[in-house]
Computed example of a mutant assay.
Amino acid sequence: MKMLMGYMAGLLFGLGLAVSGMTDPARVLGFLDIAGAWDPTLMFVLGGAVVTSFIGYRLVFQRAGPIFGERFQLPTKQELDAKLLGGAALFGIGWGLSGYCPGPAIASVSGLTFPLVAMLMAMVVGWFAARALTC
């Protein structure tokens, strides 16, 4: 049941990305183009996600435990370090250059384009590089 709920959450997330237009890299790049044809759509999508998460976390943490799991799995690390900041910088650079972040990129696989393939390949190389650097 836990795996099914994970798939359902992923499906809902992908559907939300598609409905909001966030699988279109031009929309993301339009948001980053503050000096040109600025597109504020991403700001509204992110705002909706923050409000939904804020309310959802308050409701969920009133429970003793998760419905489909044994315990809540929350990050324990709270300090900023070079790995976190470097990873965030690489993520932002990749997002700004391609217009894709991992969720929308995977949700867009059905319409493969060269930029999408290049981004997905770079993401996979990054996974292996991160694993090699942390071992």
Rank of each mutant, 00 (worst) to 15 (best):
M1F: 01
L4F: 02
L4K: 06
L4S: 06
M5A: 12
G6T: 03
Y7T: 12
Y7K: 06
M8D: 03
M8G: 05
A9M: 09
A9K: 01
G10K: 00
L12D: 01
L12W: 10
F13K: 01
G16M: 06
G21K: 12
M22P: 03
T23P: 03
T23Q: 05
T23G: 05
V28K: 01
V28P: 01
F31A: 02
L32E: 00
L32N: 01
D33N: 15
D33P: 12
I34Y: 09
A35W: 08
G36K: 01
W38M: 07
W38T: 10
W38F: 12
P40I: 13
P40Y: 13
L42P: 00
L42A: 02
M43F: 15
M43D: 08
V45A: 07
V45E: 04
G47N: 04
G48Y: 07
A49I: 12
V50D: 12
T52I: 09
T52V: 11
F54W: 12
I55W: 10
I55A: 05
I55H: 03
I55D: 02
G56D: 10
R58V: 13
V60R: 03
G65V: 05
I67C: 05
G69F: 03
F72N: 11
F72A: 13
Q78A: 03
D81P: 06
A82P: 00
L85S: 05
A88M: 15
A89F: 14
A89W: 11
L90M: 15
I93N: 11
G94Q: 10
G96C: 14
L97Y: 12
S98D: 14
S98L: 14
G99A: 11
Y100G: 05
G103T: 04
P104C: 06
I106C: 07
I106E: 02
I106K: 09
S110F: 15
G111R: 15
G111P: 04
G111N: 15
T113D: 01
T113R: 06
L116S: 03
L116I: 09
M121Y: 04
V124E: 01
G126E: 03
G126C: 04
W127G: 03
F128I: 14
A130N: 14
R131T: 10
